[in-house]
Nucleic acid binder design. Sequence first.
DNA 1: GGTATGTTTTTGTCAGGACAATTGGACAAG
DNA 2: CTTGTCCAATTGTCCTGACAAAAACATACC
Lengths: 246, 246
Amino acid sequence: MSTPLSIKIDRSSPIPLYHQVVQGIEGAIRDGSLASGTRLENEIELAQRLRLSRPTIRKAMDDLVQSGLLVRKRGVGTQVVSSQIRRHLELSSLNDDLERAGKKPSTSLLSFEHIPAPEQIQELLSLPKDVSVYHFTRLRSAGGSPLALMENWVRDDIVELDEKSLRTRGLYELLREAGVNFRLAQQRIGATIADGAQAEALDTEAGSALVTMQRTAVDDTGRNVETGSHVYRADAYSFEMTLVQR
Amino acid sequence: MSTPLSIKIDRSSPIPLYHQVVQGIEGAIRDGSLASGTRLENEIELAQRLRLSRPTIRKAMDDLVQSGLLVRKRGVGTQVVSSQIRRHLELSSLNDDLERAGKKPSTSLLSFEHIPAPEQIQELLSLPKDVSVYHFTRLRSAGGSPLALMENWVRDDIVELDEKSLRTRGLYELLREAGVNFRLAQQRIGATIADGAQAEALDTEAGSALVTMQRTAVDDTGRNVETGSHVYRADAYSFEMTLVQR
DNA sequence: GGTATGTTTTTGTCAGGACAATTGGACAAG
DNA sequence: CTTGTCCAATTGTCCTGACAAAAACATACC
């Protein structure tokens, strides 16, 4: 019944053992050797076969259940989840999404300023009084057609931004490079109707549907690094996510 | 520096110990005795004080980090995250806001049928050939004003539905009662503009913005139980979520 | 034939211990 | 004053072991 799983464990690797198991199972699911609905070996057997302890296996399983690839049931076993349901909603950026999809994103910088934080932004980012912000708007296109209009505020005591780097690189890429480790983001997704300016920028018509997204991102030290307000052409973008019952 | 935390552990309770710790810390954060940014005691100390093992404490912390209430850093400690973000996390949607404002949601059933599954639905739910579906549309209102138009398909080999119960009870309530344990849901959020029929049902104007959501839900045995397509008035609803970097 | 009642399988919870990796600060060296 | 080095604190990883709880299945009994 249970499918034997071939995973290589490299004990000299710097990658934690449990994560090697995660990668192994993830890979097996992706390349089809673990079909959806298959029952895995039980934890104890798997642990013995890989010469790992049961807690290590369980830690790996926990991660996979959390990311929605496996389903566990006491007394029954662990199954690969239905293949319709898959992946998503990581803390990623539009830029990452597009690159992953193999589309070449391009960005044009519509405005850029370095200013004292407006009151509302100061509150949103919980800024000390003396910290200023970068404020800029960008237009992101993929495959030649405009996709998103993005307005962002970034505190200036963490990273130094300039127009040139924003033209060529993604914001999250730049922040990560500056040593920012994102931990949390809070976002709200809604809808609106394109006004004249938005329609023109996005090469669509006033009155067409737009997806709106506001996001505030927090780094590992608890600072609110960035907040932004984005609009996407609804005919070209939607948010996909997998929710896991805990 | 670290704040001493008073949590009661009841070893005779059926609630797992680690979850009692989760509840305790959650409570302390919510009622303000653990202010945002506070550093917790370190894991070992906390474990000793509560007379629990470190793995148990860690399991609790894992859950709290996952749900976005805590942030950990090796060599440094564990902190309560910014209250700004937390506030958003609690008001999870405008719908909740409405409920909290004392406006009771109500539902009316607009259509109901029990039919063989259309091809597209059969595929979405991975249905065997002989399974039929319930197909119905509902209108959800809050405080007297319409909020959402919901169209759903449910496979008929898991639960028996009728018009009467759908008028008075929520769909998920009915499914849970029938013994369905949800584990996963995949959803897609986008935007559109209201057509004539939608506008009329939602008491708004054609051409106004709507938030769209398609969802497919999976139970603990891996079956796709339900799929639905909902539209919300954008001026009354948005999706709010907290993403956690893993 | 149907209904209890065990029995087995499997995941869930919990303990205690050991060492590794990272961070931040103190302190010394240049 | 800057840079490098070491140390202490703290979380991260991994192990062994044990028992509880739930589910599925087989068996015995009426």
